[in-house]
């Protein structure tokens, strides 16, 4: 699942532009991930210029370890 770090997004829309399934809603100063649509490809995480997005999968991996 893609997570947005609170209060750090600059709302530039770079993630919206690369999302292959249109799973990111950006309106004015509000961003949200549509989790039902999201395919967890993670490219929004990579392309974000200020690293505001993250995946919760890393946490799960840590748990398994």
């Amino acid at each position: 699942m893609i997570l947005v770090k609170d209060n750090r997004c600059d709302f530039c829309g770079t993630c919206v532009a690369v999302c292959p399934v249109d799973a990111i809603e950006l309106r004015e100063a509000d961003i949200s991930i549509i989790h039902d649509t999201c395919i967890d490809c993670d490219i929004c995480i990579w392309v974000c210029p200020i690293d505001v997005l993250s995946s919760d999968e890393k946490k799960e991996e840590v748990k398994h370890d």
């Binding site: 770079t14 532009a17 690369v18 999302c19 249109d22 990579w46 210029p49």
Partner: peptide
């Protein structure tokens, strides 16, 4: 179709 390939996008600051 406006979704842009990763290769076709620069992440800028």
């Amino acid at each position: 179709r406006t979704a842009t390939k990763l290769r076709d996008m620069d992440s800028g600051y």
